[in-house]
Write a protein that binds this DNA or RNA. Structure first.
Length: 493
RNA sequence: GGUCCUUUGGCCGAGUGGCUAGGCAAAGCUCUGCAAAAGCUUCUACAGCGGUUCGAAUCCGCUAGGGACCUCCA
């Protein structure tokens, strides 16, 4: 089965065919860096990281563009006043770019802890002001935008006469007009749904740039259109982002591109679902968000303990990206244990060596089916949850080989090698998971060797008081000692 | 009010017509000095009502609950 991706635009899974064979262009809406990213944001970026990695695994040359929004994002629902950066800068008595720098670095640090790959291009809104102005000019020239006192608005109703404005989320203009609340303070707009492409800045506004319409700053939506066009062209393969962006931000992006180039930007729109807490969406405005560091350290009233970045990531990968994922201590704990079991088996597998003997054709078939399933599951709209389920079914097989209950020789060497390789590739390269526990470096390893040795001697003398003391105290420190079947002793911290 | 999604066993969660998902938890057994780990086994669900079908968790309708979006948010 070839790769199929769910397209929000058509509301069904579609066979993925890149516009240019062998190459994939993908644009993902990145974070607005005026505050710390929360866990919900991370889910989206983890999802697209796995998608990016899998596309590379399939052999595509991928250009992965994820922007940093560092200007133009307005605070409220009115096209006036401060943007988020200026507001935060005033509050903290810093330059807006200091705010941007602080949270950009914080974002990158978190992404690194979660072991996600950097995008191939990470453009910023402030770095593309002229592109945004040019695009705005073209939209005006094409007749889809108008100026009111230095601010440029996109004319949604006019646009909808020729194109379909609500195409992405299947909404009719009349319904949208009806559903929109009456807002005060924007009499200058012609239509209620009109949004700003360029906003006139007040003299005291901290971030502003010269434009044909005077000093101002760009609207939020135009940055993504300008940057995707610059780096991926008028038409590219995939455009992604959180589901919350579909109805407004992405709808406006499509409208801008159509109005400017008479072409829709992406052939497939992908949307990741929300992370919820007690059934309600995690968001900045609701204040129910977890910061990654709070989760990693356990320093949060709702958390019973800390969970490692890899546990967090594994937790998210156990759910398909289009499903909502509810956050809970129980679920996280289950993921922590599950990941450990899976990773232990994986570690064991990599150390096994093959010896030839009699083949158990039933087992051979089962293993082969499960391993080949990795790719099939991913081809079905990136079903990471199903891949992990397959892996878990292989765990007893691996452990049984280790304990001698099944001989390695029960499967063919080809299958055994395939199993080793695919487990490694999918766990490390596609999912980007890493060694979850510290094996301990240098000194700790030496000390452990000594303790294990002393314990062995005690056990040989049936001095179980001493051997148990060593084991129990280590357990209390978080170091688990295991007596293996072959008489050896292993430990993990 | 509009658009759309969702309801799966104690918990989390795959699954779009027929075949046991999987993880965690729980119970029993094996192994073990005892543990832990591991292996084996058990717990077999699909909101309710109706319909389509030889056959439905899966398709259709209704009812009830939950959620998202329509306003800044991944």
């Amino acid at each position: 089965m070839a790769l199929e991706i769910y397209n929000t635009l058509t509301r069904k899974k579609e066979l993925f065919t890149p516009l240019e064979p062998g190459y994939v262009g993908i644009y993902v809406c990145g974070p607005t860096v005026y505050s710390d990213v929360h866990l919900g944001n991370c889910r989206t970026f983890i999802s697209f990281d796995v998608i990016y990695r899998y596309l590379k695994y399939l052999g595509y040359k991928v250009r992965y563009v994820r922007n940093i929004t560092d200007a133009g994002h307005l605070e409220g629902d009115r096209d006036e006043g401060d943007d988020k950066f200026s507001k935060m800068a005033r509050r903290e008595k810093l330059e807006p770019m200091e705010i941007v720098q602080r949270y950009t670095l914080g974002f990158r640090e978190v992404m690194q802890l979660l072991n996600t790959l950097p995008p191939t291009i990470e453009p910023t809104a402030t770095g593309h002001i002229s592109e945004q102005i040019e695009m705005t000019q073209q939209i005006i020239a094409n007749g889809y935008a108008y100026e009111k006192e230095g601010t440029i608005y996109f004319d949604v109703e006019k646009y909808d006469k020729e194109k379909t404005y609500g195409i992405l989320t299947n909404r009719k203009l009349e319904d949208l007009l009806e559903g929109t609340r009456e807002l005060g303070g924007q009499e200058e707009k012609k239509g209620r749904l009109d949004f700003a492409l360029w906003i006139k800045a007040k003299p005291e506004h901290l971030m502003q740039w010269p434009s044909p319409w005077g000093m101002g700053f760009p609207g939020w939506h135009i940055e993504c259109s300008a940057m995707s066009n610059k780096y991926l062209g008028k038409r590219f393969d995939l455009h992604g982002g959180g589901m919350d962006l579909a109805a407004t931000h992405h709808t406006n992006e499509i409208a801008q591109n159509e109005a400017c180039f008479n072409e829709s930007p992406a052939q497939i729109w992908m949307h990741t679902n929300m992370l919820t807490v007690n059934g309600t969406r995690m968001s900045k405005s609701l204040g129910n968000g977890f910061l990654p560091h709070e989760l990693f350290t356990g320093n949060h009233p709702l958390l019973e303990q800390g969970y490692s970045p890899m546990t967090t990531k594994f937790f998210m990968l156990q759910t398909q990206y289009r499903s909502t994922l509810d956050f809970s201590n129980e679920a996280l704990q289950a993921s922590e244990k599950g990941l450990k079991r899976l990773w232990d088996a994986y570690t064991v597998l990599q150390k096994l060596t093959y010896t030839a003997d009699t083949i158990d054709s039933e087992l051979e078939e089962k293993v082969l089916k499960l391993v080949n399933g990795f790719e099939e599951c991913m081809n079905d709209d990136f079903n990471t949850a199903k891949v992990l389920a397959n892996m878990f079914e292989l765990v007893p097989v691996i452990n049984s080989i280790k304990d001698g209950l099944i001989k390695v020789s029960a499967i063919t060497e080809t299958t055994f090698t395939l199993l080793q390789e695919k487990m490694k590739v999918f766990l490390e390269d596609v999912f980007g998971l890493q060694q979850a526990t510290e094996e301990g470096s240098g000194k700790l390893a030496n000390v452990m060797e000594l303790l294990i040795d002393i314990r062995k001697e005690a056990k040989a003398k049936k001095d179980f008081a001493t051997s148990d003391k060593i084991r129990n105290q280590l357990t209390a420190m978080g170091i688990v000692v295991k007596d293996e079947k072959d008489g050896s002793v292993s430990w993990s911290a």
